[in-house]
Design a protein around this nucleic acid. Structure first.
Length: 791
DNA sequence: TGACGCCCACTTTTT
DNA sequence: GTGGGCGTCA
């Protein structure tokens, strides 16, 4: 057990050099001798953990303990003294995966996991690196990370600036192209002319370049840049690359089959020196080819990293025999795979069932009935999942579950931070934080509507461009001239004054209070309160949640940093529900019982995948089927319908070829229970569909969905609503912010307790704003709603 | 600026 | 069938 070297853990370039007696050193010493964490690993898993040197590829089939291997390997590296936590790079794709890994390492070896500052997603680690060297790639270290919507707006501007008809050459398409290029690690100068020429009569490359230039001017990057700019940084500054190569003694990558070319290059550069790269993945679970993932990365690993050790994990700990066999036979039909044979020592269990339904509605009904039957047998609903190929399939199933009163939740869907209201709120905060943030300014300058329309914006833009200043700067200038009509001019001036005031507030108030004040004073919350549509209440809820979540951060800056990459609505699930999601969203999850509806040609395998990607597309679809089946621990139930409505039209459909791929010995065909009351015919089914189930607009699936999403922090599942506790807009008690009118009931000299700053004494009262001298935190201005009276 | 109505498209989705 | 984007008219 050699030490990495004699120096203490080099936590960071500048900071924190723990002494020999530090917590981490002691924890390492305590854990090293026993190696208790190795207990219970099977021989292959153990080999994967102990093969620390050189390139290693761990082919980990579904349910074979992949995460366990990864976390144990990290624990092992640390415990044996091969590396300090800060010298290990561990990359995942999602924040969720990173979080889980951190927790599990912590459980294995204690607090040492805290020192793992390089455990995160490709994007978060890329961000961290870029911020340190921002100036070398033409950015400032406080660059903003653009979301998809900002990106799109920027591209639209670029397209229009080039004098191209945006309708003929939509920004969406350009975004797709640029995304693809970035996924493949190509900067504007590296895109093949022919390929770039495909857009806007040969202007694709120019637009890409223009877009990148705009980003630089705005001090912003998009997601792709977080990796691409790292590549550029390292290529142009080999000395910096070397620093990182030195630092990362051991590198681990989760879900390697999902890496794209840019990520591959990123890893390869880093691993060049020490070559201790361990990639864990499963080529049979590569289902993200359409967004740039390169199965080739995993297929070519041995070629790319000569001398690589390849370890196969084939013992499955998840599914019973029939399910596993069915899945294995199915996936064996694929040509382009490294090949693994999953086996289990578990019992055979139930066969995979295949049920044909007359139409999609009957399919939904059958599933609903089965779930009710399971429910009656006390099968926990949290162990039941319905996995669909496309989200459009969800509607009918939801309808059915709603009718039966089966609680469910939809997993996936729009992310918290992608919602319009959240992005609007963030845009306000971004301008407060960084007035030069043009994209943010533009987004909210007229939200809520305040009469600053296109004409006004245009004037601002012209000035900004001519004077080469940010929009806010241009606005400040323009309100002093008479270029604008009196009304917009006054409005704009007010807005600028407001922003000045809000920026001031952030010097004394906590960021959540600033946010609350900004949202209130800008009229933004008012806007949603006045809005009568069904989801307005949900949006207000989301804003509340946003303000609440901000409290956990030390300041606005770090909150904004966090939010652009990893913001999620926290899902505290208290009630038992069935999970409904797409097959893609199901990767990495497992359930006792899995329903797999819609196994029909055209839908699954999806016609479009076949048209666009041919055999590769088919194989990816088959992998998706494999992922679906292997989610099931004890019961997998496949369904197909003979008639399905596609884009509003009824089509008759044929069972999926994947059904024929399954081995007869491991499946059973289930006769759909004859249901004469429906006449077994088209007409009967339609008739049934006509039955009103409530007539209220609150019962529409869309609304249900909105509720389900909104309710994810409450118990507010569907079942609650069924029992009459409907959570409609009318239910929203209280508003996001305290009313600023009237006295706050606080008096100078009174003692108060603040959620964040603790106890203090009131020094001044101004409407709902209090100036408080806090015992610990010093003098701050706070909103009265954030404090409670003491004594 | 808002309301209405037409037209289109429509697989999967993280960061 | 449905929602989003955009154009037109008041």
């Amino acid at each position: 057990m050699n030490q990495p070297d004699n120096s203490p853990d080099p936590q960071d370039d500048l900071a924190h050099q723990p002494s020999a007696g530090s917590l981490s050193a002691r924890a390492r010493a305590a854990v090293a001798p026993q190696l208790a964490y190795l207990n219970g690993l099977n021989p292959e898993q153990r080999a994967a953990v102990e093969a620390t040197e050189g390139p290693v590829l761990v082919l980990a089939g579904a349910g074979t303990g992949k995460t366990r291997v990864l976390t144990t390997r990290i624990a092992h590296l640390i415990a044996t003294g091969k590396a300090w936590p800060s010298q290990i790079l561990a990359v995942t794709f999602t924040n969720k995966a990173a979080r889980e890994m951190r927790e599990r390492i912590g459980r294995a070896i204690g607090e040492v996991a805290e020192g793992m500052q390089w455990l995160g997603t490709f994007h978060s680690i890329g961000t961290k690196i870029l911020r340190r060297h921002a100036e070398l790639v033409g950015l400032r270290s406080d660059f903003t990370i653009l979301g998809t919507d900002d990106q799109l707006r920027l591209m639209k501007q670029v397209i229009e600036a080039e004098g191209i008809d945006e309708k003929r050459w939509p920004a969406r398409q350009l975004a797709g192209l640029i995304d693809g290029w970035k996924n493949r690690g190509l900067g504007p100068d590296q895109v093949a002319a022919g390929e770039a020429g495909a857009f806007a009569n040969g202007k694709g490359g120019r637009l890409y370049r223009a877009y990148q230039e705009r980003l630089k001017v705005l001090n912003a990057v998009d997601f792709g840049d977080l990796l691409l700019e790292c590549l550029r940084l390292w290529r142009e500054h080999p000395d910096i690359l070397e620093q990182y190569q030195e630092r990362f003694r051991y590198m681990l990558v989760d879900e390697y089959q999902d890496t794209n070319v840019a990520q591959y290059l990123w890893l390869r550069l880093l691993a060049q020196k020490r070559k201790n790269l361990c990639c864990v993945g499963d080529d049979d679970q590569s289902i993200y080819g359409w967004r740039g993932a390169e199965v080739d990365n995993i297929l070519r690993f041995e070629h790319d990293f000569p001398g690589a050790t390849v370890i196969r994990l084939e013992r499955n700990y998840r599914s019973t025999g029939h399910i596993l066999s069915a899945a294995s036979v199915l996936i064996a039909k694929n040509q382009g795979r490294l090949g693994k044979t999953l086996h289990t020592e578990d019992e055979l269990g139930e066969k995979v069932s295949i049920t044909g339904a007359w139409d999609s509605e009957e399919e939904a009904r059958l599933i609903g009935e089965e779930i009710e039957a399971l429910q009656a047998k006390k099968h926990p609903l949290s162990e039941v999942a319905i996995l669909v190929r496309i989200s459009a399939q969800m509607r009918e199933i939801e309808d059915r579950l709603v009718q039966l009163g089966v609680p469910y939740r939809v997993i996936g869907g729009p992310r918290f931070y992608e919602r319009a209201e959240i992005r609007d709120a963030l845009a306000y905060l971004r301008v407060v934080n960084q007035p030069a943030d043009d994209l943010a300014f533009e987004r909210i300058v007229n939200v809520p509507k305040r009469g600053l329309g296109d004409a006004t914006i245009q004037v601002l833009h012209n000035h900004a461009r001519a004077a080469r200043v940010p929009l806010v700067e241009a606005a400040r200038f323009i309100v002093e001239t008479d270029e604008l009509k009196p009304k917009p001019r006054a409005t704009l001036r007010d807005l600028l004054i407001s922003f000045g005031r809000w920026s001031k507030l952030s010097e004394t108030m906590s960021q959540s209070e600033v946010a609350q004040a900004v949202l209130e004073e800008s009229g933004y919350t008012d806007m949603w309160q006045k809005e009568k549509s069904a989801d307005a209440a949900g949006r207000l809820e989301n804003l509340k949640e946003l303000v609440r979540s901000m409290e956990e951060f030390p300041d606005l800056q770090s909150f904004l940093e966090h939010v652009s990459l990893v913001m999620e609505a926290n899902e505290t699930d208290t009630i038992e529900r069935v999970s409904l999601m797409t097959l893609h969203a199901a990767k990495g999850l497992e359930f006792d019982t899995v329903f797999l509806p819609g196994w029909e040609e055209g839908l699954f395998p999806n016609q479009r995948a076949l048209d666009e990607s041919g055999r590769a597309g088919l194989e990816e679809e088959r992998r998706l089927a494999h992922v679906g089946l292997t989610r099931a621990k004890r019961r997998a139930k496949i369904y197909f319908a003979s008639n399905r409505r596609i884009h509003g039209l009824w089509n008759s459909t044929v069972p999926s070829r994947f059904i024929d791929d399954l081995p007869e010995g491991h499946v059973e065909i289930v006769e759909a229970p004859a249901n004469f009351s429906y006449g077994g015919g088209y007409g009967g089914s339609r008739f049934d569909r006509m039955q009103p189930f409530s007539g209220s607009s609150y019962q529409t699936p869309g609304w249900q969905r909105a509720q389900a999403h909104r309710a994810n922090t409450e118990d507010g599942g569907y079942s609650a609503r069924r029992s009459g506790e409907r959570r409609g807009p009318m239910m929203i008690e209280g508003e996001l912010v305290a009313k600023s009118t009237g006295t706050s009931g606080f008096a100078v000299g009174g003692r108060v307790l603040h959620t964040k700053f603790g106890p203090g004494t009131i020094e001044a009262v101004d409407g709902n704003k209090l100036t408080v001298e806090f015992d610990k935190a010093g003098r701050k201005m706070v909103l009265d709603s954030f404090v409670e009276a003491l004594g």
